[in-house]
């Protein structure tokens, strides 16, 4: 069966009240089921506004946004949309509601009015997927930053969503927390969950199947990561990750053949002296 896109944004524009120019304008974007889209942009490029649009938290002031075919401007559909598209924000402390880990994971399903046994099954699964099963009775306050963000992810997963939107969700984590969080995402994407990852860290988009660049509210580029690395990265003012800098210098010096991947391991393997 041909599946429609998870997200379909059509000519969307959004202006905040009192703002002189729209935060998002002329955006056309379609995301298919199972994709991992990295949405890149510098601060103020409109990428967070786009994320909130995809969760029906903001309704386009012009154009339209459909989530699995449901129009986000229809308030009747908001609950169904939010069940299918879960958001994880930047600061874990701003999204944890309850003092006990498992109670926080249960918050979403509780809002859906599900029976207790169903909630318990969902909580168990979400905690398992995020590796927090052993901490279920712990105080949410006592977790580390990385664990807190995985708790927020578990809370999102308990909604059993089709897609996850991550709004700079790793930017406040240390390298260890970031790695464990990204590992979770990789696992979830392998299970078929669509991921829209908003970030400005180049080294985090290695797993994306597609890269979209937002600039002053518009989609400035949309395409495959390989091509992005080769041609576009520096053009949008993003920092070139050191791996890529290495790759370029090695290739220019004739130390590695063209087509080598920008990872330390691959570079060493391909090295010819």
């Amino acid at each position: 069966m041909e599946q429609g896109p998870i997200f379909s944004i059509q000519g969307a524009e959004f202006s905040y009240k009192g703002a002189s120019s729209p935060a998002v304008k002329n955006v056309d974007l379609s995301v298919a089921s199972g994709e991992w889209v990295a949405l890149l942009g510098i601060n103020g490029s409109g990428k967070s506004t786009l994320a909130k649009m995809m969760n029906a938290l903001l309704i386009p002031t012009r154009g339209a946004c459909f989530v699995m075919g449901m129009d986000t401007s229809d308030p009747e559909l908001a609950a169904a949309i939010r069940q299918n598209v879960a958001l994880v924000f930047q600061n874990p402390d701003d999204q944890i509601v309850a003092s006990i880990v498992e109670e926080d994971v249960a918050f979403g399903p509780e809002n859906l009015g599900l029976p207790s046994e169903t909630i318990r099954a969902r909580v168990d699964r979400a905690l398992r997927l995020t590796g927090l099963s052993e901490m279920r009775r712990r105080g949410s306050y006592s977790l580390s930053g990385g664990q807190k963000q995985r708790l927020a992810l578990a809370g999102a997963l308990a909604m059993e969503p089709e897609a996850l939107i991550l709004d700079e969700s790793t930017s406040m984590l240390d390298p260890e927390g970031r790695a464990s969080f990204l590992n979770c995402l990789r696992e979830l994407n392998a299970r078929g969950i669509t991921i829209v990852q908003i970030t400005h860290r180049m080294e985090e988009v290695a797993h994306a199947s597609r890269i979209v660049v937002a600039r002053s509210g518009e989609v400035a580029w949309d395409g495959s990561p390989d091509f992005f690395w080769e041609e576009k990265c520096a053009g949008f003012g993003f920092d070139i990750p050191q791996e890529l800098e290495l790759l370029r210098s090695l290739r220019d010096g004739g130390f590695v053949p063209a087509g080598t991947k920008p990872a330390v391991h691959d570079l060493l393997e391909a090295l010819c002296l």
Binding site: K52, F107, M159
Partner: peptide
Amino acid sequence: TRADSLATAMESRCYVPGAPRTRLNP
């Protein structure tokens, strides 16, 4: 600012003030 962010996060997790909720541990 926290209250504002938290409200957004709760809304995105389908919280509707006053709507009937069930419980994990009834």
